[in-house]
Design a protein around this nucleic acid. Sequence first.
DNA 1: TTAATTAAAGATAAAAGGGTCTTTTATTCT
DNA 2: AGAATAAAAGACCCTTTTATCTTTAATTAA
Lengths: 137, 137
Amino acid sequence: MISKTCGYAIRAIVLLNEHPGEKLGVVQIAEQLGIPQHFLSKVLKDLAKHQLISSVKGPHGGYFSNQTTPNASLIDIIHVIDGLGVLNKCFLGKDRCSQTNPCPLHNEFEKSRQYLFEVFRNRTISQLNLSDAHNLI
Amino acid sequence: MISKTCGYAIRAIVLLNEHPGEKLGVVQIAEQLGIPQHFLSKVLKDLAKHQLISSVKGPHGGYFSNQTTPNASLIDIIHVIDGLGVLNKCFLGKDRCSQTNPCPLHNEFEKSRQYLFEVFRNRTISQLNLSDAHNLI
DNA sequence: TTAATTAAAGATAAAAGGGTCTTTTATTCT
DNA sequence: AGAATAAAAGACCCTTTTATCTTTAATTAA
């Protein structure tokens, strides 16, 4: 449903939020999370463009959490990375799937979608954390 | 989570099951469901290879439901088309995501996965039906 | 003000998922 | 037997997603 790219974004922003006041470089984040460096670079750039995180270039630069970071919801991130459309897509890939023109599993999936939507809407970054294990990959 | 291809398979097998004792050609099914014909052809072939449906070649041939069709579970279909691996994949795309090494949303997602797993395990083809609407696409 | 550093941006490429087209094989009917 | 029909099989292509590599621009420190 949500893309791998969006998963990268969520894990990265959670990491940044766990290090308030600290600047982390792309290389650093990528290594800790096991994400391709240059690919992550674009993801972080997008998050920064939408003010979900901040960045400074140059020596001792990097990405860091700002005021909005901890209170950002997962929906905010999904919105930036995937677009909100992904949350309504039929799990069976039926192009036009709705209450009046449902796929064979519409009701079952709807329940699941609604649950996930609430999670994405309610959970903020500050409520999440990476694994306590050292292996963040 | 489950592929668009698997969605095609499920919708097609439900359609066949709704026409017991009747042979339907690929073209017919593809048109009714709005699925690319030749692509669907491969999907049906795979379902037939695993005996979830049957087929006969030649004039008046086509695909049709057999004894196992109505009692097949969604898991059976997912198994053939996507492989059961798709049901365990982390929604954030984290490569190694587990209880001991969880992604930031592991518990939330686990709940959703378990619910869907039960649906896929319990629902049989005969319990499903296509939209009553004429527009099956 | 120059060198070093790091994010930003852009160009390309690899991989995966879907989709199309053509040929082959089995079956049925004349 | 031959023609017609429909699934099976195979080759190929397109699009999207993910990944890599290179260049540019901003910032800092010496």
